[in-house]
Simulated scan of single mutants.
Amino acid sequence: MSIKVAVIQATPVFFDREKTLQKLESLVAEQAGQGVRLVVFPESFIPGYPRGFTFGATIGRRTDTGRDLYKTYWQQSMEAGGEDLARLEKIAGRYGVWLVVGITERDPVNGSLYCTSVYVSPSEGLLGKHRKIKPTGVERLVWAEGGADSLKAFMTEIGTLGGLICWENYMPLARMAMYRQGVEIYIAPTADSRPTWTATMQHIACEGRCYVLGCNQFFRVEDYPAAYREGIADSTEDIICRGGSVIVSPQGEILAGPLWDQEGVLVADLDLDEVIKSKLDFDVIGHYTRDDLFQLTITTPS
């Protein structure tokens, strides 16, 4: 079975949920018209990854200005339910595509924010979501940690979809939690635009014997509204996120990308038979395991 997929390296309309959703739909419509069946968007595409922001926080001190900025970020974030999710479900259904979208998720019960990937089917709507289990560095200031229930893969008619977000992909046990669910199309939205990220994507493809779709934003200082530019930590360079999106085969071969220093779309046809063929000599959850020596236990709430 061959599946045409698209990795979207785009710039969100920063801190504007509605306009970013409009841009997302336009991009999905364009790719659906080309026969794409799975469309992937970057980490925190809605409402934008807050690169360089301090939210007025240092050790032992927070500012009222920082709290006001956090309030704006919170208000423009999405709930993984309600009207915002319904919009994504309608887009998926209207264009007949599966969507994986990086959002900053606002929890309506506890009020916390999470870095989340939502998986949406054109026929079933929301399949589920993955919340980042360990926000990286200062991300922990604004994003809470996801739990074990977030380590999910989703069986669909286009293959088993799953993955991790950004530096979760450097957590070996988290990767193994995805592999052992038989993930065939491993989705890795990120904000890491270093050249070394490409090697990480290739390693995961070889290790998991799966296709890997690495997806990042392209972002310049000028893409921030003027009100947000002052004091941005990365503003010494015009381009503050170069992108580097890439699509990799189960043998670690680059099929498309990496794409640098521009918005764009990577497209590839994924033959799922290649996943099976690649397991002849290595299968991390099959004949190459040593369950008599190693065990992975995932702690879930009682």
Results as ranks from 00 to 15, higher is better:
244 G>D: 09
60 G>W: 05
73 Y>L: 14
149 D>N: 10
221 V>S: 03
96 G>I: 13
110 N>Y: 09
210 C>E: 02
197 W>I: 10
257 G>C: 08
50 P>E: 03
176 M>H: 04
75 Q>M: 13
153 A>V: 04
288 Y>G: 11
75 Q>F: 07
141 L>C: 03
94 R>Y: 07
14 F>D: 03
181 Q>C: 04
144 A>H: 11
99 L>W: 01
137 G>V: 10
42 P>C: 03
121 S>I: 15
151 L>K: 04
104 T>V: 14
85 L>T: 02
292 D>A: 14
128 G>A: 12
217 Q>F: 10
87 R>N: 09
119 Y>P: 01
24 L>P: 08
104 T>M: 07
3 I>H: 00
57 A>K: 15
298 I>T: 07
74 W>N: 06
292 D>P: 14
130 H>A: 09
113 L>G: 14
294 F>N: 10
239 I>G: 03
15 F>C: 15
78 M>S: 09
94 R>G: 02
216 N>P: 00
212 V>S: 06
288 Y>C: 14
172 P>T: 01
64 D>N: 09
293 L>H: 08
186 Y>T: 03
58 T>N: 11
82 G>D: 06
4 K>I: 05
154 F>R: 07
119 Y>D: 00
221 V>Q: 00
53 F>H: 12
105 E>H: 08
15 F>P: 15
178 M>P: 01
246 V>P: 00
277 K>V: 13
70 Y>A: 13
91 I>H: 11
194 R>L: 12
130 H>C: 05
30 E>C: 05
14 F>K: 12
102 G>P: 12
125 G>K: 12
232 I>A: 05
164 L>N: 06
173 L>C: 12
153 A>R: 00
229 R>K: 14
130 H>I: 07
37 R>S: 08
147 G>Q: 06
257 G>E: 04
232 I>F: 02
136 T>L: 14
55 F>K: 08
203 H>E: 07
118 V>H: 02
51 R>Q: 14
138 V>H: 06
169 N>I: 08
153 A>L: 01
46 I>P: 01
175 R>D: 07
39 V>M: 04
128 G>S: 12
283 D>V: 06
265 V>P: 09
209 R>L: 06
210 C>V: 06
35 G>T: 07
45 F>N: 01
180 R>N: 09
